[in-house]
Amino acid sequence: MRVSVPNIPQSLLSTKLTSQVSLSEAIERITAFLAPGNVTLITGAGVSVDSGIRAYRGRDGRYMNPNYKPIFYHELVDETEKGQSFRQRYWLRSYLGFPSIREALPNTTHYAVAALQYAGVIPRLITQNVDGLHHEALSITHPSPVKVQESILELHGTLHRVRCKHGHLTDRTVFQDWLSSANPKWKDFADAVEKEGAGLRTNPDGDVAIEHLGISYDSFVIPECPTCLQENRHNNVHKPDLVFFGESITEHVKKRSYLDIENSDRVLLMGTTLATYSAFRLLKHALELNKPVLMINVGPSRADGVEGVHKLDIASGDVMRDVVQNVLRNSGVIDPMVDKMLSSGIRRPPVKDDDDDVAQAAE
């Protein structure tokens, strides 16, 4: 069985960007696009970069983590000894990487988007991100977690829940504690890394690369599901509640995403290369329905050169606060909650390291 990592065609990666826009022009064009309202927004990993979470791809559109080789769905759920090895690799790396995702804070773009959601300009948000930061930003306007969940469609799921092979759901923080209890030596290692402030290079899915440390995965213990034990069966096959490479999104999520496109008047793409087909087909659906489409993204994307897509090569964090002020103030919306959101959020992108200079496509 061969499953490949989604990628941007080489022909697009080698194409030079032909146009740049000034900040003022970008703000003006995004404002005009959003002002009529009823916009569906699709976001990707680029939106969370200012929260300190690296995107998969750099400005040249190539993977920033050299030799990036994720675990695929069929490998993770394989119940043979080989599958157990894959799960040990996944959960050790995820155990070490999850704290950086858990502790990340929403950035200025997350809050700007939340302000537009609150004002009804963006009634539908589809995110490919699994970090939960859109939810955290919007939660200051919606005290009910259910209302927040209804306002945001997580196309690829979330890191914040874990599901065993029999469907038992666990909060990820609780599962993280289970992993700590089952692996006291790795808990000490993780505490030492945090204390030293060294950090580990974390991908948007919470995975970290640790091969350079000479670490073996076979000592990592994956705890059994306690609910399964209560049902008199042993089971330590767990999976984060997200879509892995080689796995399909659920029919419910697919239908909901299509409806979100169909019920909008226009579609905004932000911080995404659209390398995964589950996102790219939403763009195709929008264009088939003759929806106006605007894209805000740094570097090449799968949408480059697609007729009907207007692209601004600019970071959302550079423009979205000003855009929100223009859209809402020009429409007469004056609300203390909007002011609160526009004064919230960090801009703390990851510190550039040597790997950023040797970015390459995944094999």
Score class of each variant (00 low, 15 high):
residue 277 Y to W: 14
residue 241 D to W: 14
residue 236 N to D: 15
residue 278 S to M: 04
residue 342 L to C: 05
residue 243 V to L: 06
residue 260 D to V: 03
residue 268 L to I: 00
residue 328 L to A: 00
residue 322 D to L: 05
residue 340 K to L: 07
residue 287 L to W: 00
residue 287 L to D: 05
residue 276 T to V: 15
residue 255 K to T: 14
residue 232 N to L: 10
residue 276 T to H: 04
residue 319 V to N: 01
residue 347 R to W: 10
residue 278 S to C: 02
residue 234 H to G: 03
residue 300 P to H: 06
residue 313 D to N: 15
residue 326 N to M: 11
residue 324 V to W: 04
residue 332 G to T: 08
residue 342 L to G: 05
residue 308 G to F: 10
residue 300 P to F: 09
residue 279 A to L: 08
residue 245 F to Y: 12
residue 310 H to C: 03
residue 311 K to L: 09
residue 287 L to M: 07
residue 303 A to P: 07
residue 239 K to W: 06
residue 273 T to C: 12
residue 237 V to R: 03
residue 242 L to G: 01
residue 346 I to S: 11
residue 271 G to P: 07
residue 317 G to A: 08
residue 341 M to K: 06
residue 291 K to P: 08
residue 307 E to F: 06
residue 294 L to V: 13
residue 250 T to C: 08
residue 285 H to A: 13
residue 340 K to R: 14
residue 351 V to S: 12
residue 244 F to Y: 14
residue 238 H to W: 15
residue 337 M to W: 09
residue 282 L to E: 00
residue 317 G to S: 11
residue 237 V to I: 15
residue 343 S to R: 09
residue 283 L to A: 02
residue 243 V to T: 13
residue 288 E to S: 15
residue 258 Y to H: 08
residue 239 K to A: 12
residue 303 A to Y: 01
residue 272 T to Y: 09
residue 337 M to K: 14
residue 256 R to G: 00
residue 290 N to D: 15
residue 265 D to E: 14
residue 274 L to A: 09
residue 273 T to D: 02
residue 260 D to S: 10
residue 282 L to F: 01
residue 322 D to C: 01
residue 348 R to S: 15
residue 247 E to S: 05
residue 303 A to E: 03
residue 252 H to C: 09
residue 296 I to W: 01
residue 264 S to H: 04
residue 256 R to E: 12
residue 341 M to S: 07
residue 283 L to N: 00
residue 272 T to I: 06
residue 349 P to I: 00
residue 319 V to Y: 03
residue 330 N to L: 06
residue 349 P to S: 01
residue 279 A to W: 03
residue 247 E to D: 10
residue 314 I to Q: 02
residue 318 D to T: 13
residue 238 H to M: 14
residue 347 R to A: 11
residue 246 G to T: 08
residue 279 A to K: 10
residue 296 I to G: 01
residue 272 T to N: 09
residue 309 V to M: 08
residue 258 Y to K: 07
residue 277 Y to N: 10
residue 253 V to M: 03
residue 320 M to W: 02
residue 345 G to R: 05
residue 310 H to L: 01
residue 234 H to R: 11
residue 343 S to H: 09
residue 270 M to Q: 05
residue 299 G to D: 08
residue 229 L to C: 08
residue 247 E to W: 04
residue 244 F to C: 09
residue 243 V to G: 05
residue 284 K to F: 02
residue 298 V to R: 11
residue 256 R to C: 03
residue 325 Q to G: 10
residue 312 L to N: 06
residue 344 S to E: 10
residue 332 G to Q: 05
residue 335 D to R: 07
residue 244 F to N: 03
residue 347 R to K: 13
residue 301 S to W: 03
residue 337 M to N: 07
residue 302 R to W: 01
